[in-house]
Design a protein around this nucleic acid. Sequence first.
RNA 1: GGUGGUAUAGCCAAGUGGUAAGGCAUGGGUCUGCAAAACCUUGAUCGUCGGUUCGAAUCCGAUUACCACCUCCA
Length: 475
Amino acid sequence: MLRVFNAMTHQKEEFKTIKPGIVSMYVCGPTVYNYIHLGNARSAIAFDTIRRYLEYIGYQVNYVSNFTDIDDKIIKAAKAAKVSEQVLTAKFEQAFDEDTAPLNIKKATVRPLATEHVTEIIDFVKTLINKGYAYESMGDVYFRARKFPEYGHLAHQSVDDLEIGASERLDDGALSKKEDPIDFAVWKGVANDASISWQSPWGAGRPGWHIECSVMAIKYLGDTIDIHGGGQDLAFPHHTNEIAQSEVYTGKTFANYWLHNGFVTVGDQQEKMSKSLGNFVTVHDLLKDVNPQVLRLMMATTQYRRPISYTETAMQDAENTLKHLTTAYRNLYFRLIDAKTESANTVIVEKIATFIKHFKIAMDDDFNVANAMTVIAEMATYLNVLASQTDRLIKENIEGLLSEYTKMLMVLGIDIEKESNFKQTSDEQVEAKINERASAKISKDYQLADKIRMELQAQGIILEDTPQGTRWHKE
RNA sequence: GGUGGUAUAGCCAAGUGGUAAGGCAUGGGUCUGCAAAACCUUGAUCGUCGGUUCGAAUCCGAUUACCACCUCCA
């Protein structure tokens, strides 16, 4: 039984979907005015891992993740780059794919754009006004936050405390437009320097932040969704505001489970990596030097609610771990060479079942990847132990082990088959060299044998001698 | 100031009442022509103080440190 930590109640709760076998999941995506940084990647990886696990245990997951492609920052960035907003956002939407694909982040089922839903957004705002929860003020439209009784619950903040913060922060201009400092914009009148705007009953303008997620989540997943996800920093104001507008609009609970991922931190003080602090590393840059699967493993093996400290050491650890897991895969795979075809050994079959069971127990506990990794590490050891047995192994057992091992790692977004560099290596020349070296070894000409090994190594081919012969792989 | 979170071996980290999983790194060992890989083995009493209990890392109280949210940010 899967249990998830619901940020709304601050408790682990049994996970029950609205429709049997199907999960509806909405994850707030990035505002596309720059390359994504490690914090964005962390969020994408966290929810991709959750999605993959849900699929692993048999759910169909309808996964919607948006691009927010209209917003003050976009207008500003477009102006700075002297291009239109559309050109800017198109560029970074594409960059998002280029950066996330190598990290094995599956594409969302639907990836809606705010700018393609402005008509629906306007209708949504009209409804809020008609219901008395929003009001027009000098070309803007604001939501009456205080009128929504549960306002602030997700962030565990009282309306009064929020108001103190808002009052200190807002300038007179903003305050004069609002009935109450905590009210938030659902529609904003046209900005002076924006090249983009839409006509509305309140004049030319653009959607406020938050509203696009409400509109698109409801449109693609329904009035109530199973899981709503995003970074911890979205709890307030983004998700808080989404809840208020959505629940006023539909009269129903917006999401049953709220999942928030922790931050990526940097430095000795474990400071949050963020755009505003300027202490970020973009995925675009990092992947020039780093194996994407190392980054994926580093992030996927930290439980999604915990912070990830981004350090050289952490990356090095992940690299070592990935190498170890890959070697285990290769080692057992190599034993197919002398495997025998007969019915599977039931001891091994049961062993596999136990690994799967423990893996699920771990992940069922709010996606406890640390414990899941313990299972995978035990499995890797088991693979190695079998691989070093002198008796011939049974083909079916090897295939069963490798298959389940591969699936578990795939839940974490690690493609171990790809990492092992099998399949795509063609080998006649290498095999010839290995045979030559084998002859040299038989005649105890170790100088020649070592020379051949060194030559291949220079080409990135690593040879390893075993009782069953010499195995090799690319570096 | 309000709210939430974190503190376990050199590092990462699991563990919510019964005498501390796992991984990395380190030391030792086995295997090996050598190498590589692998396997075995090696270490902490759980921020601090106090309390409850037969018994606490785990419950209660206090305290310290760090982080985050209360403005845009995943």
